[in-house]
Simulated scan of single mutants.
Amino acid sequence: MSRNSIEGKVVLITGGAKNLGGLLAREFAKAGAKAVAIHYNSDSAKVAADETVAAIKAAGAEAVAFQGDLTSAAAMEKLFDDTVAAVGRPDIAINTIGMVIKKPIAEVTEAEFDHSSAVNVKTAFFFLKEAGKHVNDNGKIVTIVTSLLGAFTPFYAAYEGLKAPVEHFTRAASKEFGERGISVTAIGPGPMDTPFFYPAEGEDAVAYHKTAAALSPFTKTGLTHIEDIAPWVLFMVSDGWWMTGQTILVNGGYTTK
């Protein structure tokens, strides 16, 4: 198998049932992946997971879905072990998990901070740990973060602040795993037109985000769409493998670093 090809590879995607993760799962299957393993968290995502598994199989790839709360190291280790047992060692591992808190710092509770930290920081760290242990030599690892890492803005401290460590994790992992030919990157989308975005935002904020990107006038909603991000992920795990240790903001000019 070519280093730069997706064909014949085994792919693992956390949060792979729907939204960006679900689109990526389908696109990897269409690109010739041998197998795609997807993870989903809650019972409410099972129908979407089943639909994604069916779409992967229809495209000619093996497919398997695993449910679990990945905010513990043991759960993340189990996901990778189960994937290896079901479809083999992954060549490509993608982490799409995250959660948004939008509040003034003075209003964030300790419980909210701890939960956001578990989802955005702890999950990402142990994902990279297990990916480093399980991904094949010359493999590819990508974590989805946020373009807010390049923003100077209020109210997102408990979100962007708890995504920021992933940049450091990514740099360290690229150095530690690089001797095995593994590239490690993070991709930061702009505000995406998915159900993940709207609950945290008021009407005024939604209206602002829809006009904030330089290319907003040329999209259906003014926001980033999952179809804008998927090609970048596929590129980074194929021909774009030479880029490693970097956080890439893909947002139509919403913000920059």
Rank of each mutant, 00 (worst) to 15 (best):
R3S: 08
S5A: 12
G8M: 07
K9M: 08
V11E: 04
K18Q: 14
L23R: 11
L23M: 10
L23W: 01
A25P: 09
R26Q: 13
E27I: 00
F28N: 04
A29G: 06
A29W: 05
A33V: 07
K34D: 06
V36N: 01
V36Y: 01
I38H: 02
S42L: 13
S42Y: 04
S42C: 09
D43F: 00
V47W: 07
A49E: 10
E51V: 06
E51I: 03
A55E: 15
K57E: 10
K57I: 06
K57L: 01
A59L: 10
A59G: 12
A59N: 13
A61M: 09
E62V: 02
F66L: 13
F66C: 12
D69N: 15
A73T: 05
A73G: 03
A73W: 02
A74Y: 02
A74Q: 07
A75M: 02
E77F: 04
L79A: 12
D81G: 02
V84Q: 00
G88P: 00
T96K: 12
T96W: 11
I97L: 15
M99V: 09
M99S: 10
V100A: 06
I101E: 13
K102A: 08
I105W: 13
E107R: 08
E110Q: 07
F113K: 05
D114Q: 14
D114L: 11
S117M: 09
A118K: 00
V121M: 12
T123A: 03
A124W: 09
A124I: 05
A124C: 05
F126I: 09
F127L: 03
F127V: 07
L128D: 08
K129Y: 00
H134D: 00
V135R: 02
N136F: 01
D137S: 15
I144N: 04
V145L: 05
S147D: 11
L149H: 14
F152R: 12
T153H: 10
P154T: 07
E160A: 11
E167Y: 09
E167H: 10
T170D: 12
R171L: 14
R171Y: 10
A173D: 02
S174Q: 09
K175Q: 12
E176Q: 13
F177E: 05
S183Y: 05
V184Y: 08
T185A: 14
A186G: 11
G188W: 03
G190C: 12
M192V: 11
M192Q: 06
T194H: 04
F196W: 12
F196Q: 13
F197G: 04
Y198K: 08
Y198G: 00
P199M: 08
G202M: 03
E203V: 07
Y208W: 11
H209E: 14
K210A: 06
K210N: 06
A213D: 12
L215I: 05
P217E: 08
P217N: 11
T219S: 15
L223R: 11
L223K: 14
E227P: 02
F235R: 09
S238R: 09
G240D: 07
W242N: 06
T244W: 03
T247L: 00
T247S: 03
L249A: 02
V250S: 04
T255R: 08
T255W: 10
K257E: 08
